[in-house]
Each structure stands twice: as structure tokens, then as C-alpha cells.
Computed example of a mutant assay.
Amino acid sequence: MSFLEQFIKQEIATGLVIIVVVFLRLIVTKAVKRYSSSYAGIEKRTNLVIKYINLLISFLAIISLIVIWGVQTSDIFITLSSIATIVGVAMFAQWSILSNVTSGVILFFSFPFKIGDVIKIHDKDFPVEGEIIDINAFHIDLVSPSGERMVYPNNMLLQKGISIIQPNSEGKGFTD
């Protein structure tokens, strides 16, 4: 019995998984772009969210292929729990990175502000006011009224009170 005949079911299932992954990626990309098209200035965030979702789809496809090709489910769970433990310990030391990425995704879907908005961050010890010039996965870039460029972490944006000041509320923005 040849290899092709011996594993025909697995080969067909693998082909179906690949087709599903391609279609899911296309559908998700179109859906996220359609959702973000009504908001100006968020192209970078749109591409970032698409990358995150595509990574999740790829991860699920790999798990599906492992199951299709006969790896025991208990072995998968043991491996995944070991990986999760190692990643958890490593991320505990780097919780701010994970927190900033998660906050970046939350900010993408909630759209509390956009590039060009002037915001005031109500921090008791260090209040910040500036115009948003860029929004990234980990932080936003601000320009203060005096022209100073500031970087503010996304997780702090969700923890502090923020006032959105219209750029033309006093007749001018901070940058030209």
C-alpha cells in the first residue's frame, strides 16, 4: 500500500484545512478593513489587528493539522500546557508588553480617539496634554503644545482619565 493510499483521509482533511485557512484570512481581512474604513487615520492599527487575527488562525490550523495526522489529544494538551507555563513565566516578567499589546487591540476596536486629536491625560503626578501623531501596538506618540514629542504606553491610556480636546477648539492645533 503506497503512502498516498494509506493516508488519503489525512491528505484530504489537510487540503480542507488549508482551503479554510485561506478563506478565513480573506474574510477576516475584508471584514476588519470594512469596519475600519469608516474611521480615518487608522491604517496601521488595522494592519496590526489583521496580523494578530491571522496569527490566531494559523495557530488553530496547526493544532488542527496535528490532530488530523494522529497526534494524541492528551499529548497536545501536555505540550500546550508546558508551552503556556513557560510563556506565562516569561510574560510575568514582561507583563507590560502583553498589557500594552492587549490595550492596543482594545483601543483599536473602541476608537476613543484618533490621530490628530488633542488629548489631556489626567495623571495626578504628571498630567500630559498633546496632539496624537501616531498610534502603535505598544504606545501612542504625542506632541505637546511646546513641540516636545512624547511616547505614552497604551496600557496607561486605559488606566487614566482622558479628555479629548478638539484640535480647533481654541482656533489652532499644536502642529501645522
Rank of each mutant, 00 (worst) to 15 (best):
R149T: 07
L158V: 03
G171H: 10
I42P: 10
Y152T: 04
P112L: 11
E11N: 08
L158Q: 01
P167F: 01
F113R: 01
F126K: 05
I42G: 14
V21D: 13
F109P: 02
I83W: 04
A13L: 11
I106F: 07
A13G: 03
F126M: 08
V32W: 05
T14S: 15
N47C: 12
N168S: 10
G147I: 15
E5F: 09
I121E: 00
S2M: 07
S36D: 12
A137G: 08
S110F: 06
F109Q: 03
I27S: 02
I68E: 12
I133H: 07
S169Y: 06
F126E: 08
M1H: 09
S81V: 06
I76N: 07
Q72E: 15
S146V: 07
F138I: 00
E11W: 09
Q10D: 05
A40Y: 01
V105C: 02
V89R: 02
V17I: 11
G116W: 11
L157Q: 11
N47D: 13
S163F: 02
F138A: 05
A13T: 00
D134I: 07
K124Q: 15
K9H: 09
R25P: 03
P127F: 01
L142E: 09
L55A: 15
S144K: 02
G116A: 12
L60D: 12
L157N: 12
G15F: 13
